[in-house]
């Protein structure tokens, strides 16, 4: 994917969250957004995934600009997948029904075809035994892996992860990161917000450092994490890296 974001502005109740953010990537498979809390990472991700419309500026993927009206944006969201920090599974449906719902109601598969579609991924990620449980009966790691599968089984062009492991303990975190690593190996494109720096370094084709509503630096992981001259980056990394 070639991402090109230009002069993005976003305000909530008079607070400027994105302040003329611009970011251009090479033709990459994975982009990781890092930076301090409140810096605008999630806001940027919500715009990229078509959930919010920026107050100003424009975004394009592979040269195709994101639409601004809700109906066209909904069509766009149907071609991508979004995974949230707090799983956001539907609590009244079983894990399986959470996976089937978008396939049947959005993508027009018959229930039988949808079941067939999710059977193999459920097995591959060791979730078949939990498919009939409601979200409340699943561990945090299982919930998040189901949420990733729900985004994945519709065969999206790319996935967006918003701090997918922030609510998880270390063991579950590694479960979920391992799954994302597998997806990368299978060629899935994604943009991810995370605080897992070691993981970001190993998985990202490019890293963008977002702070104060702007991209302060972007490029290959080594360039950003090791050789960056910017004072704000170095102070950020010195605080979160041991």
């Amino acid at each position: 994917m070639l991402l090109h974001a230009r002069d993005l502005v976003q305000r909530f109740d008079g607070t400027t969250v994105l302040d003329g953010l611009s970011l251009t990537t090479g033709d990459i498979q994975s982009l990781v957004l890092v930076g301090p809390s409140g810096g605008g990472k999630t806001t940027l991700l919500r715009i990229l995934s078509g959930l919010d419309v920026p107050a100003g500026g424009s975004v394009s993927f592979d040269g195709v600009p994101l639409p601004r009206d809700e109906a066209a944006l909904r069509d766009y969201r149907r071609t991508v997948g979004t995974v949230f920090q707090a799983y956001n599974l539907f609590p009244h449906l079983s894990a399986l029904d959470n996976l089937l719902l978008p396939l049947v109601h959005v993508h027009g598969l018959t229930p039988a075809a949808a079941r067939e579609r999710v059977r193999e991924p459920l097995e591959r990620f060791h979730l078949a035994a939990h498919a009939h449980k409601r979200p409340a009966e699943l561990s945090g790691g299982q919930k998040q892996r189901i949420a990733i599968l729900r985004a994945l089984v519709v065969r999206p062009r790319r996935l967006f992860f918003d701090e997918p492991t922030s609510a998880l303990d270390p063991e579950m975190t590694s479960e979920v990161l391992e799954m994302i690593r597998k997806l990368k190996a299978e060629g899935v494109q994604f943009v991810m917000v995370t605080h897992e720096m070691a993981f970001a370094r190993s998985i990202a084709d490019e890293i963008a450092f977002v702070s104060d509503g702007r991209v302060l630096a972007s490029g290959a992981p080594a360039d950003i994490l090791d050789r960056c001259a910017d004072e704000r980056l170095r102070s950020f990394f010195s605080r979160i890296l041991i």
């Binding site: 959930l51 069509d75 969201r77 997948g81 949230f84 956001n88 539907f90 959005v106 985004a151």
Partner: peptide
Amino acid sequence: QAQRDSARAIGLTPWQ
């Protein structure tokens, strides 16, 4: 609100 976000993310219409 997270439920509405999740529904929008998978492409459901407001009525759905």
